[in-house]
Computed example of a mutant assay.
Amino acid sequence: MNKNPLYYAKILLFGEYGIINDSQGLSIPYDFYRGAFKQSDALEGKSEKSNTSLKKYFQYLKELQESGEIIAPLDLISLEADIEAGFYFDSSIPEGYGVGSSGALCAAIYDKYAVNRIDPDTDIDKNSIVELKKILGQMESYFHGKSSGLDPLICYLKLPVLISSKEELGTVALPKPGQGKGAIFLLNSGQPGETQPMVNIFMEKMKNHGFRNVMKEEFTKYNDACIQAFLKGDTKPLFSNLKKLSHLVFEYFTPMIPSSVHELWKKGIETNAYYLKLCGSGGGGFVLGFTLDYEKAQTMLQGHQPELIHRF
């Protein structure tokens, strides 16, 4: 097991819904929120709730293992014994906010209980990353119905990952945080969201030829251009493509935009003071903001708790 048993939240900077459709994605760990296993003889409140959830999750993993369908065998005897001894997952990662609460738990369980664990410090190459994504996706499917495995992968590796396609992904270096006025931030919509209903809406929309074309021709182009510009630290093309992306999401992904930020989203595009985009599947939780003047954006977004992630 890792020497450091903390598992961080993750933020999908670019690629929400696009990665389902084979455009690029860029996901980063976010250590402001984190989770770790703890043990208590007197479980109560949050710790008792977590222990009860672990028991249910254990049953799911056990059924998977007994059916022979599990991709990576787990030491379920130790897991069960630990749960009975008062193990729980102590996490500050908010649930339903698009920052990887279930991903951190899956990463923690894999790290501690996988029989032939892929070591993030020594075994990482392109093949092992793809394999890890499959393993962790299967483990996380309990929480979302179907999981790409990306969230728990980021939580496990604790490194930024660039997704070029479903089978092609690897770790990547981010530009060093600058000292300028620009920033990436989180904005709290004030309500949790659920992944599965939002993904269902998207899949339903994908049956429409016009929407499929928008995803293929426009979304992918703007999204991938944003990633390339961000990784190069090139703010001009980043923000011109961000505006197009924010506008496109506002037009075609309205059900995924939490109602509490609807007007703020529109205001950002109209004033060019900041641009908002989805953080995860939407419907609630956090949305992501990008601005060239963080102080100005903070003033305009007062009362919505902008939370700084990265400075330009």
Rank of each mutant, 00 (worst) to 15 (best):
T220V: 04
Y222G: 08
S189E: 01
Q196L: 13
E204K: 01
R212Y: 15
Q196M: 06
M198Y: 13
E194Q: 00
L187W: 00
V214Y: 00
F211E: 10
V199I: 13
N188L: 12
F219A: 06
Q191V: 10
N208Y: 08
Q191T: 15
N188S: 06
V214A: 05
K205W: 03
N200H: 08
E204N: 10
S189A: 11
V199A: 13
P192S: 09
N208G: 14
Q191N: 05
G193F: 08
K216L: 12
G210V: 07
I201Y: 06
K205V: 12
E194K: 03
T195E: 14
E204C: 14
N208S: 13
E194Y: 01
F202Q: 02
N213C: 10
S189V: 14
G210Q: 06
L187Y: 00
L187P: 10
K205Y: 05
K216A: 15
G190R: 04
F219V: 13
N223M: 05
R212C: 13
E218Y: 03
N208C: 15
F211P: 14
G190T: 01
N188A: 04
S189C: 08
V199K: 07
H209Y: 11
L187S: 08
F211S: 13
K216E: 12
E194H: 00
F219Q: 10
V214D: 09
N188H: 07
K207W: 11
G210K: 11
R212K: 12
V199F: 07
M215P: 14
P197N: 05
R212L: 14
S189W: 02
K221I: 10
P197M: 08
V199N: 14
E218H: 07
Q191Y: 05
G193P: 02
G210T: 12
F219P: 10
Q196A: 11
M198I: 15
V214M: 03
Q191D: 01
G210L: 09
Q191G: 04
K205E: 04
E218L: 04
Q196H: 05
P197Y: 00
V214G: 14
I201S: 05
M206P: 10
